[in-house]
Simulated assay, not measured.
Amino acid sequence: MSEYLIYFNQQWVGDHSEDWFRGRGPLAKAVVDEMKDAGVYVFAGGLEEDGPVYSADPTSGTVMITDGPFVETKEFLGGFAVVEVADEEAAKLWAGKLAEACGWPQEVRRFGPGPQ
């Protein structure tokens, strides 16, 4: 079994009405519940768009903690799920279900081996 990250950048969401988003919430929750029932769910969550962001930078020899993202970018992570599945095909299946429920694209990446 391998763990996969399924994620989206906030900019992929697009502009939608509050009613549209309210309608998507139960659909996304249903997919998460399905993941749990299937035994593949590890973790999932959306990130606060306007919440605090901090960066930790050790490159000066001392770790500096600062407010804000380390790199100014137009795209930032909006939310993600981690699943533990048998193979890439299963990970893509869950990404497709999440994409359909949320109404925006998702990317899939496999985690590398953990520390020994």
Rank of each mutant, 00 (worst) to 15 (best):
W104R: 09
V108Y: 04
M64G: 00
G79V: 05
V32A: 03
K92E: 10
E48G: 14
F8H: 13
M35Q: 11
T73K: 15
K74N: 11
E100D: 03
P105R: 11
Y41S: 10
E18C: 09
L98K: 06
W12L: 12
D67V: 05
S55I: 02
G14F: 08
V82G: 06
E18T: 07
Q116W: 13
P115E: 14
G51T: 07
D87E: 08
P26S: 11
D33R: 01
P52Y: 05
F80A: 10
A28F: 10
D50L: 02
K92Y: 14
G39N: 04
R109M: 10
K36R: 10
V32R: 11
W12R: 15
E3D: 12
A101L: 06
F43C: 02
Y41F: 12
Y7T: 04
F76S: 14
A90E: 00
F111E: 08
P105F: 12
E89G: 05
G78W: 01
G103P: 09
V108K: 01
A38Q: 04
E3K: 15
K97T: 09
L5E: 05
E72N: 01
G45I: 07
P58R: 10
G114Y: 09
A86N: 07
A99C: 10
W20K: 00
L77K: 07
A101H: 02
P58K: 07
P52G: 06
W94Y: 03
G39L: 03
D33T: 15
V32Q: 02
F8V: 09
Q11D: 14
T66E: 00
L5C: 02
E34T: 15
A81R: 11
A30G: 13
R109T: 00
K74P: 14
R110M: 10
F111R: 05
V83E: 03
S60D: 03
A28T: 01
G14W: 00
D50N: 14
K29L: 09
R22V: 15
A86S: 12
P113A: 02
W20P: 14
E100Q: 06
R110P: 02
Y4T: 11
A30Y: 00
R109F: 03
R24Q: 12
D15W: 09
P69W: 11
F80L: 14
F8Q: 06
D15L: 06
K36I: 15
D19E: 15
A90G: 03
A28N: 10
G103R: 04
A28R: 07
P105G: 07
M35L: 01
E75G: 06
P69I: 14
F80I: 08
P58D: 01
L77T: 02
E34A: 14
F8Y: 10
L47E: 15
Y4I: 13
E72W: 00
Q10R: 15
G39H: 02
A101N: 05
Y41R: 11
H16Y: 09
A90Q: 12
T66Q: 05
E100V: 06
A56L: 12
G78F: 03
V71K: 11
R24Y: 10
W104F: 02
V83C: 05
E72V: 09
E89V: 07
W12C: 14
A38D: 02
E18A: 09
L5M: 13
G79D: 07
